[in-house]
């Protein structure tokens, strides 16, 4: 099978890959406290790299520390195949990072915290912010904290996505559970390549 190098721009870049290494990126985004760092930790083969700082603004109300640059984890498929997992900072003032992080990504995992004041607005905001990327790649939506906040329900999110003319799997997840995060990413991959076999 010919080697597929998705983006030369980062195939030999700062994480130390070389030209013979196939690197892919999956991006995790969503509001502060939605579980991005936790989700990456659940699925990563390596100890994740975080850039948490003590929260100093509104994020402080939700958690003591928050991601300010990015989170990084990795799934290592072989010596030459790696899937890099990037978590965007949740706070909007770091949104200049988002375009940089999504460059060359294969899909977007949007985590929405169902306990927040207006999850529909969050969904709108992030799908709008990543509009181009979503159109080019694949979005999957994971709803967190549904165990304690049952409303809105998954069906509400489906309707909201319909209104936004976006087609994407929506799953209720617990970011702490590897199985949940894994299913979300599986849905992303299978949406990108329906019928893909599990080798």
């Amino acid at each position: 099978m010919p080697h597929e190098v998705y983006s030369h721009a980062y195939s030999n870049d700062w994480w130390g890959g070389d030209m013979s290494t196939e690197n892919r990126k999956i991006i995790f985004t969503g509001p502060v406290g939605a579980g991005k760092t936790t989700a990456i930790r659940s699925i990563s083969d390596i100890e994740i790299v975080t850039t948490d700082e003590q929260a100093s603004d509104m994020a402080k109300a939700r958690k003591p520390a928050t991601t300010v640059a990015m989170d990084y984890g990795m799934i290592k498929l072989s010596e030459n195949e790696r899937v890099h997992l990037y978590g965007t900072p949740g706070q909007e003032r770091f949104n200049f990072m988002w375009d940089i992080l999504t460059e060359g990504g294969i899909g977007l995992v949007l985590l929405i915290d169902n306990s927040r004041k207006d999850p529909q607005q969050d969904l709108k905001f992030y799908t709008q912010a990543f509009k181009k990327f979503i159109e080019a790649q694949q979005l999957v939506v994971g709803i967190t904290r549904m165990d304690t906040h049952r409303v809105p329900n998954v069906n509400d999110y489906r309707q909201w996505l319909d209104q936004l003319k976006i087609k994407a799997p929506v799953f209720e997840i617990d970011a702490r559970k590897r199985d949940d995060v894994s299913l979300l990413i599986q849905a992303m991959l299978m949406s990108l390549a329906p019928g893909a076999e599990i080798l």
Binding site: M1, R24, S78, S182, L189, L192, A196
Partner: peptide, 14 residues
């Protein structure tokens, strides 16, 4: 889509 890589990643995930 790089189906080969996807397939291997799926295998890992399941």
């Amino acid at each position: 889509a790089p189906r080969g890589l996807f397939s291997r990643l799926l295998k890992r995930l399941v």
